[in-house]
Amino acid sequence: MIRNGETGIPCPHACYAIWHNKQDPDDYLHMYYHKDTYLKAYEYALQPINGSHEWTKSSIQPVLPPVEKTMPGRPKKKRRKAKNKSKK
């Protein structure tokens, strides 16, 4: 079936073709977009968690930022031109 950018929603051309065949476009809608799925996802209220001082410590090392790599090509100048220097 043709979908609108693979979102699970039929595109307008597909909706017209489905209507032309006397069918309901909602039958072709992905289950993710149904009201029942939405209500099931938010059925339980989220409980607040305690502050970070009460979190359990794990043995996993923290994630470090990636190592900076020098890019190929000529490096940029780090100097600034003086304000009183005339422009060309």
Rank of each mutant, 00 (worst) to 15 (best):
H53E: 11
H53G: 05
H34P: 00
K69T: 11
C15Y: 00
T70I: 13
R80T: 06
H34N: 09
L64Q: 14
N21Q: 15
Q47D: 01
S58A: 07
H20E: 05
Q47E: 05
I18G: 00
L64H: 13
K69D: 01
I18E: 01
I49R: 10
Y33Q: 09
M71E: 07
G73V: 03
S58L: 14
K78T: 14
P66K: 12
W55N: 15
A41E: 03
P48R: 08
K81S: 14
P65V: 02
L39Q: 11
K81H: 12
T70V: 14
A41M: 09
S52L: 13
K81P: 00
S86Y: 13
K78V: 07
H53D: 09
P48Y: 01
A14P: 02
E68S: 04
Y42G: 04
P12C: 04
D26A: 13
K40M: 03
I49C: 03
P25R: 09
Y33C: 12
Y44T: 12
H13D: 07
A17Q: 04
K22H: 14
W55H: 15
S86F: 14
H53C: 07
P75T: 01
K77I: 02
Q23K: 15
R79N: 13
K22F: 07
I49G: 01
Q23T: 08
W55A: 15
P66L: 07
N50G: 14
R79W: 11
V67Y: 01
H13Q: 09
H30A: 08
P12S: 13
Q47P: 00
Y32R: 13
K77Y: 04
E68K: 09
C15T: 07
D36L: 02
K57A: 06
H13C: 04
E68A: 06
S52E: 07
I18Y: 02
H53Y: 14
S58Q: 08
D24Y: 09
